[in-house]
Write a protein that binds this DNA or RNA. Structure first.
Lengths: 236, 236
DNA sequence: CGCAAACTTGATGTTGCTCAAGCTAGGTGG
DNA sequence: CCACCTAGCTTGAGCAACATCAAGTTTGCG
């Protein structure tokens, strides 16, 4: 169960990765596990590009990935960050709808799409597990749509902080932020400057502390949550 | 194949609805088709509410539905409009993540979640079909995220017009707009006034014509597409 | 230690929002 | 059949939030 360990705090989500299922199947068939070996990407390196043929499925084992779409003039929108346990390319699409890049050094497992599709048909539980993961993604995307369409800058930043805080140790109020301000801005539909100013404001109001960029301390989680939920934007 | 007919222009998407699969299964088992009968909702009526227990799956047969999320102070974000052939509640979630309301008079088919889950396990092609639909939704959601985060008002409105135009007759340049300006605004992350002003601007520039609200004519599809894609925002 | 990339802060600008009228159209009742 | 009434739409004026432009400052790496 070495792969399972890579997925730290994925809530109640069935962390049934491709690797897990492959291993399971092979084991029950008396074969040696055929899970691919790890491979690595350095920060900034591209995994695949929007429009490319989608022939692989990736599984993040360590590090952080960003998925984004570009407009012709260079405007960028990050749709999602991928942490260990997450997967990309599940969609039975022929072409990637976004670009995937390493934010930090990343360890990955790559699976051929064909093997994946076979697994869907052969392993009864697998299709269900993939469906659940895709649905969870969809749900997160809808939350992101609400954020982008209707929340103000402070609410966006607060939501973001809680999101990555929850993804790390549950109650650890010290959050690691491996992504740059530019990444955060492009995720929240803001500019770098607005993100920076908003963080400064949250610091002044003593909702958070900023020991260093790349590290954020949540001081008043309650107020931050109320802000993120869109309750207490008064004063912002 | 009466259900199929309800789905007019769904591109290449496998329009494998629950009804279709139920009918197939029953037929092959020599039973009478057990697809539920149609039922109706008047404009403005609610199908289900965010937070409610998700025990049903709905299939739009006729009319238009809106799905939305609310913030505590009433800000609304419409995440999606559902047209004939579309389905809601596919996600294996216990609770609806949004509210569903009728925009126009709507004809629906409702299926018990339990029957649906059985179908996933029993009918081999069904899980795959559902997965594809969910993935398509996810892809659309990501497009919406790009729109909300990085497009200006004119680009948003242009994208919206093309989206609903493509959903109707492919090359019919007269588009029916059953939703109000308020719906459009809440879908695009704008206000009613901005939507109205932007439409007027597009009319003045002769990209569209507005015979009446509720009816829009696309005059210059090429320019509209370039605007929607984020190429020619110059002048807007 | 020096350099480049990332971050912060300030001054100014612009897009889209808010508030406030009018306008239009469709439905209802006289 | 027409007049009214209301919901929805359009238009205008002023404003606020966030973007842009422009320095400075910090940080981390070679």
């Amino acid at each position: 169960m070495h792969v399972q360990a890579a997925s730290p705090a994925m809530a109640g989500a069935a962390s049934a990765t491709v690797a897990n299922f492959l291993e399971l199947r092979d084991r029950s068939a008396g074969r040696l596990p055929s899970v691919g070996s790890l491979y690595f990407k350095a920060p900034g390196e591209t995994l695949f590009t929007e429009g490319e043929e989608a022939d692989s499925i990736y599984e993040v084992v360590r590090g952080l990935l960003r998925l984004y779409k570009l407009l012709p003039d260079g405007r960028r929108q990050i749709t999602r960050f991928l942490a260990p346990g997450d997967m990309v390319g599940l969609a039975p699409a022929e072409i990637y709808a976004f670009t995937a890049e390493a934010v930090t050094k990343v360890a990955l497992r790559r699976h051929k799409r064909a093997a994946f599709e076979r697994l869907i048909d052969e392993e009864p539980g697998f299709a269900r597990s993939v469906l659940r993961q895709t649905s969870d993604e969809l749900c997160a995307a809808q939350e992101q749509i609400l954020l982008l369409g209707r929340k103000c800058a402070a609410e966006k930043v607060a939501s973001f902080l809680l999101l990555i805080a929850d993804r790390q140790g549950s109650e650890a109020e010290e959050v690691e932020v491996p992504m740059t301000r530019s990444d955060i801005a492009d995720y929240l539909g803001l500019t770098i400057e607005t993100v920076s100013r908003t963080l400064t404001k949250l610091k002044q109001d003593e909702l958070i502390a900023l020991p260093s960029p790349g590290r954020i301390l949540i001081l008043d989680r309650e107020q931050l949550e109320s802000l993120a939920a869109g309750e207490g934007a008064a004063g912002f």
